[in-house]
């Protein structure tokens, strides 16, 4: 009680108070926090057990058991295919996604900055947006044949529009007050971009990049099912065609999920950079 009375003054922000009391609780509840952290893993273990029991009680064998799936992953490792396929998929995503980012972000920021350009382009962007990147598969094969280039192109197509729209929005939502303050301190056009515009759009861009990377990872699997002969998407189709190896199909799905998760974790760690984080920490 005494503490809270003392901290009633304006000069002590509430957040600092909250952090201080949070620190005390951390000491007291170290063990229970550990249990809370363990909870998601316990839940996954429970699901795996349920999966095992359900498959065993079902004579038609509609799914491989968890152990067969692990066996499938080990099989892939033994034949040196796991690393090769993962690298192949990541390679395509890296190229398609990076090319899209390099082109879409500057273009989108410029469009967002000039409001008239945004008004002129908006209808066509809204028409292109609902077209699934997968609808481009026939055209990709027509233009680039079956191979890496087609897959990279599809990922590019799938990433370009979301990144462009995010960038347009990010540029549009930079408050005038920051730009005016920058001009008031005598910044020229290049300095305004580097010191005001860039930091102001960064938080929104990072969110857009993270969501789009997830989309790119979805697209690569689909593209590999049709347009190439390596990668995790190819693994899934190939395992089914070549002898109904459903253990490998599910193994491929598990690996796709895990890598997608790791990509997301990587992008999220960018959000934690303090000078980028300002927009998330407000409210």
């Amino acid at each position: 009680m005494c503490m809270s009375k003392m901290s009633g003054s304006d000069s002590i922000p509430q957040r600092a108070d909250m952090q201080a009391s949070g620190g005390r609780q951390k000491m007291r509840h170290g063990w229970s926090r550990f249990v809370v952290a363990l909870r998601p893993f316990l839940f996954i273990a429970l699901l795996i057990v349920a999966w095992d029991i359900a498959v065993r009680r079902q004579p038609a064998h509609l799914l491989p058991t968890p152990w067969e799936t692990v066996g499938g992953i080990l099989d892939l490792v033994r034949h040196n295919l796991l690393l090769k396929y993962v690298v192949a998929s990541l390679f395509r995503v890296t190229w398609g996604f990076s090319l899209a980012a390099i082109l879409a972000i500057p273009l989108g920021l410029a469009i967002g900055w000039y409001r008239r350009a945004e008004m002129a382009l908006n209808p066509i962007l809204q028409i292109l947006r609902p077209i699934s990147p997968l609808a481009w598969i026939p055209i990709a094969i027509l233009w680039f044949g079956v191979g890496d280039l087609s897959a990279v192109f599809l990922i590019f197509v799938g990433s370009f529009l979301p990144l462009l729209l995010t960038s347009i929005n990010a540029a549009r939502s930079v408050p005038d007050v920051y730009v005016n303050a920058g001009r008031n301190f005598g910044l020229g056009p290049m300095q305004l971009i580097a010191r005001i515009f860039y930091p102001a759009v960064m938080p929104q861009l990072i969110v857009g990049l993270r969501i789009t990377l997830g989309v790119a990872w979805l697209v690569v699997v689909a593209a590999e099912m049709i347009a190439v002969d390596s990668g995790l998407g190819f693994l899934i189709v190939d395992a089914r065609n070549a002898g109904n190896r459903y253990d490998l199909v599910v193994a491929g799905m598990v690996i796709i999920g895990l890598i997608g998760f790791l990509l997301d974790v990587g992008m999220r760690s960018l959000e934690k950079v303090k000078s980028f984080r300002w927009s998330y920490s407000e409210d």
Partner: peptide, 9 residues
Amino acid sequence: YPAELSGGM
């Protein structure tokens, strides 16, 4: 960072 400050600050 400003987000950690009160309005007056």
